[in-house]
Design a protein around this nucleic acid. Structure first.
Length: 285
DNA sequence: AATTTTACCTGTAGGC
DNA sequence: TGCCTACAGGTAAAAT
């Protein structure tokens, strides 16, 4: 569930509580949590030890902690249920605690990676000249990135033979959008999820991008979206945007624009929520 | 070559 | 009580 706004909330928490601290020790409690670190758990822990953490960065749903003076960064992806928590040393270990990082300073807190479904993980990678970890070079800039190219995005949509929701979830075209914010932006844009991208006019693409940005900024302002305790900030607190959702999770409830009950449809092993009146299905689908 | 499907995971809810 | 299925779903490998 963590999408761009939730990951950004976590990044800000790390910037406040973890940046500029020196790692004393790292313990990997579940090898799957570092499976993207090909050299293995021991290498991961060893290479963290003794290094100072710089300012956390983010692209889409990925965030990373640069290690000063090494040209490397700790890359994190929360997957479905990953949490990065700043906890007091004496806090009892969480049920799904996977990685624990302690610091060489007088502060009482440590960094914990907790992940129930283990789709997320941590890994160490070299960074390029722009500071981006090399393994996420294929991830597109996200819509809140000042350098996101709206025109290039539109041209890519016109060129592709796919549908609009697939395109929104394609992290090589636009990053940071997941199932929740895709459905929300499509509802605001009155676009059906199966609309072919090649039929979108330049103004329609601009409107869609505007709604993607609006919904993400609004979610960010209230700390992100949480349906349960699986998404929390570094202090373990939930966000409030679930109260503002117009489509996602509202099957059977009246559309806030026209009153028609919102529908849920199975879609790519997940669900799409939409208003059948406001978001008309395309003819040739 | 581009596009679509599947595997990876665990916990919860609901039906019988 | 307990067994079964559906669902949550991002990413990347595999299949088409």
């Amino acid at each position: 569930m963590p999408e761009l706004p939730e990951v950004e909330v976590v990044r800000r928490g790390l910037a406040r509580w973890v940046a500029h601290r020196t790692v004393a020790d790292a313990a990997v409690l579940h090898p799957r949590a570092v499976r993207r670190h090909l050299a293995g758990p021991d290498d991961f822990a060893h290479r963290l030890k003794g290094h100072r953490i710089g300012t956390p960065s983010r692209r889409g749903k990925y965030l990373w902690l640069p290690l000063e003076d090494t040209g490397e960064a700790v890359l994190a992806h929360l997957g479905m249920s990953g949490q990065l928590l700043v906890q007091p040393h004496e806090a009892p270990p969480e049920k799904h605690l996977r990685v624990r990082v302690t610091f060489a300073d007088g502060l009482d807190t440590e960094l914990r990676f907790v992940d129930q479904r283990t789709f997320g993980g941590l890994s160490l990678h070299d960074t390029g000249p722009d500071g981006l970890p090399d393994v996420i070079a294929h991830i597109a800039r996200d819509p809140l990135d000042p350098l996101f190219d709206d025109e290039a995005f539109h041209l890519a949509l016109r060129r592709k033979r796919t549908t609009v929701k697939r395109a929104l979830l394609d992290q090589s075209l636009i990053s940071g959008v997941g199932n929740i914010y895709a459905d929300e932006a499509l509802w605001r844009s009155r676009l059906h999820y199966e609309r072919p991208t090649a039929t979108l006019t330049r103004p329609r693409t601009a409107e869609l991008l505007g709604h993607v940005r609006d919904v993400m900024n609004e979610a960010l302002a209230v700390g992100g979206t949480s349906f349960d305790s699986l998404y929390v900030n570094v202090n373990g607190e939930s966000g409030y945007f679930d109260r503002s959702l117009d489509a996602y999770g509202r099957e059977g409830l009246p559309c806030r624009r026209c009153g028609t009950p919102i529908r849920r449809r199975p879609w790519m092993n997940r669900s799409s929520y939409f208003c059948p009146t406001c978001q008309r299905a395309p003819r040739a689908s």
